[in-house]
Design a binder for these strands. Structure first.
Lengths: 221, 221
DNA sequence: GCATTATTGCAGCGATCGTTGCGTTGACGC
DNA sequence: GCGTCAACGCAACGATCGCTGCAATAATGC
């Protein structure tokens, strides 16, 4: 995990019903051409979306506006991405991968405290927030793209602690205690949540897990 | 709280810089006319927004479409609501008021368990989810409108318990433990969360508050 | 280097959006 | 009841959106 193909080599929404895996390999066959220019266009469009979302009232984020900002013809944007929602989901996904290294401090508590702080800091960025909001607003389940990577990171830290022999909560439980408050406050309130608060979240999860042996329970949901 | 003017008598976004409170009283003066027709139009437009959000891919929610669905002329919608974001925020706010009675079972645990279940059930409704998503996506901080009423309800239950002499957490803490997971799962995942899971949330808050005397701490953030 | 072809640019089109001016309706105070 | 004026409907307009032909470019395999 967290080692997916780099941002410049992936094709966003290829309408051709081919197997994605074969495209990522070196011998991609005579089809698909994610070469220099396509990658450049892709990067430019993604950056344009982020920039426009940052300093624009959103909602006036249209395909032509994105194309103009990216220095690309609108037709290109229309053809490569089926809809604005797809584009937003792609931007969200590519932005939230490889942007945050999973900490490895040696203890679960240390890892979680560090990771929660990093995520909280990231959620302070207006750009990040704008992308999440826009992706959530779009129909094409762009919301999942925002957190799938974060869930993977969380799972990695829990797995590592489990390998150390510690009792760990489920990923769902950890997401409820850590990710949920982080994202909830960032999206719905004006309190970004400071470092102390974030640390308390991590501590409460670890402490609760230490006192009660709920980790072995099958867990609801 | 929860006793604001009924849905049919409020004016959404009156551009006139008057004091809102005077408008709600009976002797509203010679200005403002939230009478029968205006209220009818308002209700129709709100319903149209909800209906369109329910069975449309969203994002193709435009002012003319809303007007057509509401049986109202587009000009009316343009004039009464400054932007689509304002309209969405207004719809969100009016929908999340008076739609859920604050339970009063006699104990904080019972109140919270009941309330959490109700909120979880509400978040199962696709219409509700669509409104929240759309309001979040709009620029004009429509996100706050979705939860401000819920926060008030939560605070009311906590205040009642405090009057009973019990130790209660802060509203922020309760929101982190209860509301955050509810909304996070509803927005970002496909697991709506069942009744048992919701009850566990309420229990964890009450139990944690009972074991440790953190309630008297000034609490961060 | 050269042929192939995925990808982009270009021009132009229908459709719809968002706005404005003006006449009409109907809620409110008397 | 009647007059007043906020709120709505109507028609028309410019602007922009989203899409589709076809030509040009450049990445890929040989």
């Amino acid at each position: 995990m967290a080692t997916r193909a780099a941002d410049t080599t992936r094709s966003d929404a290829d309408p051709r019903p081919e197997t994605d895996t074969t495209l990522r390999t070196a011998h991609a066959g005579p089809r698909a051409r994610p070469g220099g220019r396509s990658a450049r266009v892709r990067t430019a469009v993604h950056r344009a979306v982020i920039e426009l979302l940052a300093d624009a009232p959103a909602e006036q984020l249209t395909m032509p506006a994105i194309a103009a900002r990216a220095g690309v013809h609108p037709t290109t944007v229309y053809r490569r991405w089926a809809s604005l929602g797809d584009l937003l989901a792609a931007v969200a996904e590519s932005r939230f991968t490889d942007d945050l290294v999973v900490p490895d401090t040696g203890s679960l508590r240390g890892d979680l405290r560090r990771w929660v702080t990093d995520v909280a800091t990231d959620l302070t960025d207006p750009e990040t927030l704008a992308i999440i909001r826009a992706a959530l607003g779009s129909s094409t389940g762009g919301g999942c793209a925002c957190i799938v990577e974060r869930r993977t990171q969380l799972g990695a830290m829990l797995d590592r602690e489990r390998d150390r022999g510690g009792v760990v909560p489920t990923v769902d439980r950890a997401a409820d205690v850590l990710m949920a408050p982080l994202y909830f406050r960032a999206l719905f309130t004006d309190q970004p949540g400071d470092a102390d608060w974030a640390h308390d979240l991590a501590d409460s999860l670890v402490d609760h897990c230490a006192t009660t042996a709920v980790a072995t329970r099958p867990s609801s949901a």
